Amino acid sequence: MDTKSDGIFPKRQYLPVFRGAALVCAAAAAGALLTGCGQDTDGEATRNGAAEAARIAAASTSPSADASHLTEDQRERKALVPKAKTGYEHALHAATAAVAKSEPVSVELKGTPDSPRWEAEVATGDGTAHTVSVDAAGGKAGEARAKHEDEDDKRELADLLKKATVTAEQAARTATDKTKGTVTAVELDDTDGGTPKWSVDVVTTDDWNKTTYDIDATNRKILGEHVDRD
């Protein structure tokens, strides 16, 4: 332990004086009361103190630090996502079970906190699609409803299903490996080049942002990533 004296006070006596002076200066800078704290002649200390006070004030009121600054979409996610007691996997299984020989096309969490639901779409090999609503709280699937589409749409969907060798669950795991959170939507689509892709939405429950991943449905490669902070 260093017990040397500075020639005026022993070191153990000097430290409280120094700390007290620092606290007075910090308080003066934060409140713009910079009198008697070593202000220089050109006002540089005043400017530096005011800038630091402004920085601290801005940080303390940032959206990430204060939940009251959540956007409308973030508040909706915060209210809805925890109410889904069954995940997207259960919704897809329930939907495919409701339509014989069908495969998943999409699933999305919708509804209200009082009545959350998964809206799923499945299709058979010829591209005939059905929608199935699944209770996100209890997991019960409703009646399958056929979608009325023309033959071209059916052929396009059938072609996507044949090309997609990556499952919806595999795509979702690829997304959550990158961003830990809750999957709220998965959808099969195609790229501009005609390659099938899965779009996966992941909501992070620390900030309620939504990250959307586009994942190649033939090799699980991540094609794009977008964070929605609105």
Results as ranks from 00 to 15, higher is better:
183 V>Y: 06
141 A>G: 06
77 R>F: 10
187 E>K: 15
40 D>K: 01
70 L>M: 12
171 A>K: 04
54 A>N: 05
184 T>E: 05
33 L>E: 11
194 G>P: 02
6 D>A: 12
85 K>Q: 12
81 V>W: 04
99 V>M: 03
95 A>L: 06
76 E>G: 07
57 A>Q: 09
151 E>R: 11
64 S>K: 13
56 I>P: 01
121 E>Y: 01
208 W>G: 11
43 G>H: 08
89 E>Y: 06
120 A>Y: 02
9 F>H: 12
98 A>N: 06
2 D>F: 10
175 A>R: 00
18 F>T: 10
114 D>G: 11
119 E>F: 07
109 L>Y: 01
230 D>Y: 01
37 C>A: 10
66 D>Y: 00
227 V>H: 07
174 T>P: 00
130 H>N: 06
46 T>S: 12
34 L>M: 12
56 I>H: 09
140 K>C: 02
164 A>R: 02
93 H>P: 02
201 D>L: 03
203 V>R: 04
217 A>V: 10
42 D>V: 14
197 K>P: 01
93 H>Y: 07
205 T>S: 14
39 Q>N: 06
190 D>R: 15
48 N>A: 15
172 A>W: 04
213 Y>Q: 04
121 E>I: 02
1 M>T: 11
12 R>C: 09
97 A>P: 01
121 E>Q: 14
33 L>H: 11
201 D>E: 15
59 A>F: 11
102 S>Y: 00
195 T>G: 05
33 L>P: 00
84 A>W: 02
19 R>H: 12
77 R>N: 14
1 M>Q: 13
174 T>N: 06
166 V>G: 10
203 V>M: 05
178 K>P: 02
117 R>Q: 13
155 R>G: 13
43 G>C: 10
155 R>F: 03
63 P>N: 07
125 G>R: 08
24 V>G: 05
200 V>H: 03
132 V>Q: 06
21 A>M: 13
132 V>D: 01
173 R>G: 05
62 S>Q: 11
127 G>E: 07
156 E>A: 15
31 G>H: 13
98 A>I: 09
133 S>C: 03
99 V>W: 00
81 V>I: 09
99 V>H: 03
19 R>M: 14
188 L>I: 14
45 A>H: 07
212 T>L: 06
118 W>L: 00
145 R>E: 12
153 D>A: 15
75 R>S: 15
153 D>Q: 15
103 E>R: 08
84 A>K: 00
62 S>H: 14
23 L>E: 12
184 T>W: 00
228 D>Y: 04
55 R>L: 13
2 D>Y: 12
156 E>K: 14
161 L>F: 04
4 K>Y: 07
201 D>I: 04
213 Y>M: 01
67 A>G: 02
214 D>K: 11
191 T>L: 10
19 R>P: 00
177 D>Q: 15
170 Q>M: 09
127 G>Y: 02
92 L>E: 07
92 L>G: 04
194 G>F: 08
60 S>W: 07
101 K>F: 00
150 D>F: 03
152 D>I: 14
58 A>V: 05
86 T>F: 08
174 T>C: 08
105 V>N: 04
45 A>M: 13
72 E>L: 13
39 Q>G: 08
31 G>S: 15
60 S>T: 12
93 H>M: 12
203 V>H: 07
85 K>G: 00
191 T>Q: 13
168 A>S: 15
38 G>T: 09
199 S>I: 08
214 D>F: 00
8 I>C: 07
228 D>V: 08
97 A>F: 03
79 A>M: 01
32 A>S: 13
97 A>M: 09
57 A>C: 05
220 R>N: 15
